[in-house]
Design a protein around this nucleic acid. Structure first.
Lengths: 363, 363
DNA sequence: ATGAAAGCGCTAACAA
DNA sequence: TTGTTAGCGCTTTCAT
């Protein structure tokens, strides 16, 4: 009898007998099984399909797991299930434009959201000259289950590449003008944000409201600008001549603002970024004009700068926490090969009002 | 002959014959071996011990690897070698104080530095109420090779915990007053930074230079303060009564600055953070006093706020890129069980001079 | 210099 | 409901 249960015990010293302790004394499935007097498979089930176990067995196994402080070895599980529970994110060195200032907040939210579904974030870097560098390798080595792509704005090739490769991913940023794109995405409605800002300024009694945005090639800026333009037209204000395009830079904005303010009928600015808005505030300071009371200013992204800049910069805030949650939700659908109920999801930004746009405020 | 080379081909359909393609059509070692006409082991050697192969074999194998686009499966390798090449970093939700503003820059540098040695960063989160949450799990599941701990400043328990567990890690931040600590660390000399700032202001002709720092309980602030104090004393200025402690908050600093400025002999401020320095600038604006020309202001950390604040905030900048490089270097020593040649490494900050401290500048 | 065999720790499929 | 068997893809002996 004993020879059946412990097969070939004497002949082959430690061959067919599974090891009961991992390399560093870390408990394995076998340790737990041994201790609980069940088979390894039962322990595995206790973890992955607890409903299959008789309640008393389950409790016994769980208590052993608890007592031993056992956690399943990730590599082994990953090898078997072909799923690492890792989500890859290429972390770019400081980019110009929006994404940079937001990264911190976004990353927090994403780590948080991912962890709620048992996923971790894998950060990797790549040759700045090659936007695709790094993805291929992680894919082939099956290191990650999926990617989050964050910079689809500039018509970047990542999305197309991953789509062609059949790699699971979701994008923060809509596919703009790529008709081939049919991947999941989440984005924030920039036009709605600019509209929010513009209508707020109109409410404050401003009429001739200028726009400071980036180069025409920036889809993001064009999108936001369209919201400003629509809001103005609806209010019966002609936007022609009120829009300026420049690079995302405090000093460029400062000088542009000076130029715009030569037209004394202009009393407010909506900007495509906080950086530009700060430039406007600098110009106002130089002209000894009161922000808020005399000239209204609204920025975009509610960055740290907006929060500490005197006298407080009103800004459009992206719901990054929600973006992260939606991205993870999409990721699950993609990974579960569930029917994608919706291709993309557009979220609404909010306006954080501070003194730079409050007519009634005086220092 | 064929029956020997392809053993038991007829009897057991696909049993003892190693699979040649991975689950998703991804090539494996076996694919490459088959294609190159060598054994799997030889392919493995081509990857890990190329010097063992005859040059011509090596070239042949490498060309097949290249052609097939083969990368070794990470899970399998990790299972076998017990090394994931992953470094864990707990990514805290927005903290007060310094670390937050710097995180972005630091993280970039760390991802970059780690990638140069074939490591990736694994971001995880944990219950904010429990500073140890998350570590244990990753450790037991052998998901990461090591940790980078970033918030040792407040006498946090992470370092002690990891040290007791025998887990490999390095800390960004010295162990302050824990005499038991004997782990590797990298830190930036805050006292030297404050001294730099203070001496710069002395050079500009200031004498009575105030200090704005955090609560006494903050070791970081105390450290920086000591640099200010020493520099003043060496210049023959009595620091007594010139130091203020408050919370890291623009408005608190603004009000504190007003109070300090009632003493007209004070003509400059050194601050423990950019946030505090921005508060001082606000107070100056309210008093219609020229920053730089009349009152010198220096912040700490060279955050985004410092860079865009009018008229430009002089600030102490931490060499985060270098910190990251040193951390990774330390990590390697720790992981390689090499003799730790030095316990910790203290790096020197630099001063980024802008107009808030330039006596000669007028708007 | 190359190959054969074993096994890392886990789970999917099947058997009892 | 529980146990048995096989194998994920790799590297580490050991033999040739």
């Amino acid at each position: 009898m004993s020879s059946t249960s412990r097969s070939s015990a004497g002949r082959e010293p430690s061959r067919r007998r599974p090891r009961v302790l991992g390399g560093d004394g870390v408990p394995t499935l076998a340790t737990v099984a041994d201790e609980a007097g069940v088979s390894r498979q039962t322990v595995s089930n206790a973890l992955n399909n607890p409903e299959l176990l008789r309640p008393e067995t389950l409790v016994r196994v769980q208590s052993v797991i608890e007592r031993l402080g056992y956690s399943p070895n990730r590599a082994a599980r990953q090898l078997r299930t072909r799923s690492s529970h890792l989500v890859g994110l290429r972390f770019e060195p400081a980019q110009e434009g929006t994404s940079n200032a937001l990264m911190d907040r976004f990353l927090h939210s994403l780590v948080e959201a991912a962890s709620r579904t048992g996923h971790h974030l894998l950060l990797f870097s790549g040759d700045p000259a090659d936007p695709l560098d790094g993805y291929e390798d992680l894919l082939r080595s099956t290191a990650v289950d999926a990617f989050v792509v964050t910079d689809t704005y500039a018509g970047t090739p990542q999305a197309g590449f991953l789509q062609d490769r059949g790699a699971p991913f979701v994008a923060f940023g809509r596919p703009w003008d790529d008709p081939r794109a049919d991947h999941a995405w989440v984005d924030v409605d920039g036009a709605a944000g600019a509209r929010l800002a513009t209508e707020h300024l109109l409410d404050q009694g401003h009429r001739r409201i200028a726009w400071l945005g980036w180069e025409r090639s920036s889809r993001i800026s064009q999108d936001r600008r369209s919201g400003w333009e629509a809001a103005l037209r609806e209010a019966g204000v002609d936007p022609v001549g009120l829009g300026v395009r420049l690079t995302d830079n405090v000093d460029a904005a400062r000088m542009a603002a000076h130029r715009v303010l030569e037209d004394a009928t202009v009393t407010a600015f909506v900007c495509a970024s906080d950086t530009l808005a700060v430039g406007v505030l600098h110009a106002l300071a130089e002209r000894r004009v009161q922000p808020g009371a005399q000239v209204g200013v609204v920025g975009f992204d509610d960055s740290a700068a907006a929060q500490v800049t005197w006298p407080g910069l009103t800004s459009v805030r992206q719901p990054l926490e929600q973006v992260a949650v939606e991205l993870v939700r999409s990721l699950h659908r993609v990974l579960g090969h569930q029917p994608v109920e919706e291709q993309g999801r557009m979220l609404e930004p909010t306006l954080v009002v501070r003194r730079s746009s409050e007519r009634g405020w005086k220092p």
